[in-house]
Amino acid sequence: MFPLGNRTLDTQALRWHVETGLAPLLAATPARLSLSLRSLDGSVVLERDAARVQPSASIIKLPILLALLEQVACGHCRLDQQLALDAGGARVGGTGILHQLLSVASLSLAELARLMIVLSDNVATNALIGLLGCAEVTQWCRRAGLAGSCLQRRMMDAAAREAGLDNFTSAGDAASALGWMLREGSLPAELRAFALSLLADQRERAHFGAALPAQTHLANKTGQLPGLRHDAGILTVGDYSAVLVVLADGFTDLRTADSLDGGDGAELLARIARVVAEGLQAQAQAQE
């Protein structure tokens, strides 16, 4: 089970540590960066342009997961319920593996959710969008207080994107989504634990997960597009945890601009997460 810290953060000390570590990183990058750093109870430690709405990339898969689990909690569907993959449309490519496994005709909702988060599988995601509907996911965002987030298209739908339909979020909204998941009463304990287990099993570790101190635990969801790097997650060191979201675009290096991994964008997010983890580590060491 993913460990959540049970000690209250010294928010002033953590804010000072992160601001000090961020200053040279931000001075050295042309990117536009939105950041939200919060305690587990949702209290803001540090924010920078956190309300700026921008294309979500695969970060939108976090609200899809939570909207699904709310439906499960309300009894409208079950995690062991089978869903035909045709419900999500064509076997689109991009991230994931199901577009290569043509003999797989259906999976349970739990399996689809796992593939959507752990491997960022677009076929699994589209199947769940087909089940829930874009409007329901957007309505969940409103119920959860995510004012700038919306789901308007399926994954890899270039025609919809060209028509002006895209998926959007902000750093503050992504942090609020994680806060909703963690808040007692939003979901039954077993569904909250299920969601955390998926995020903790995230296989994309080139961003927040790339340079963390060895004793750091991470549960997160990344999102990448050419020129854009996002990550949203929970960091735990010892008995201290924090929610960190960074959405960044405007990178000018060719690797970040032309690909979905690596480059200055991935490095920047890795260094920011390390700064936050070291701030948590300092508090854990002070406790010893």
Rank of each mutant, 00 (worst) to 15 (best):
E288G: 11
L235C: 03
D249I: 12
P213M: 03
A50I: 05
R38C: 07
A158C: 12
E111T: 15
L35V: 00
S34C: 03
Q285T: 00
A113L: 13
Q82K: 12
T125I: 00
A105I: 11
E204N: 12
A84M: 11
L35C: 02
R78C: 04
G209H: 10
A286M: 05
V276A: 06
A90H: 13
V245T: 00
V123I: 00
G179F: 10
R205A: 04
F2D: 08
L112D: 07
S176W: 02
C74H: 13
R78P: 10
L62P: 04
S149M: 01
Q100A: 14
L107T: 11
T216Q: 04
I60P: 01
F2V: 00
G185A: 02
Q100Y: 15
F168P: 09
V92D: 02
G5T: 12
N126D: 05
P55M: 07
V237D: 01
S259Q: 13
A206E: 13
A177R: 01
G93N: 01
S197L: 08
N6V: 14
I272C: 10
C141E: 02
C74G: 15
R271V: 05
L37F: 03
L65I: 10
L85D: 13
A51T: 06
S170Y: 01
A193M: 09
T138M: 03
A28Q: 14
V18A: 11
L66H: 14
N122G: 02
A67N: 09
E204P: 06
V237I: 00
R154D: 05
L33V: 13
C141K: 08
H230M: 06
V45N: 03
A160T: 09
L68P: 14
G148E: 00
G263V: 06
T125Y: 05
W140I: 03
G223D: 14
F168W: 03
E267A: 11
R91D: 03
D166Y: 07
A171F: 00
L9F: 07
L269N: 03
A219P: 10
L25V: 03
L131C: 12
N126L: 00
L132K: 07
L83K: 08
R203A: 12
G21L: 07
L4T: 05
L218M: 07
G94H: 09
Q215D: 05
V72N: 04
I129L: 05
V72R: 08
D239N: 11
A160P: 10
G223P: 02
M156G: 07
H207T: 12
N122Y: 01
S43P: 12
L107H: 10
L46C: 15
A159L: 11
T236K: 06
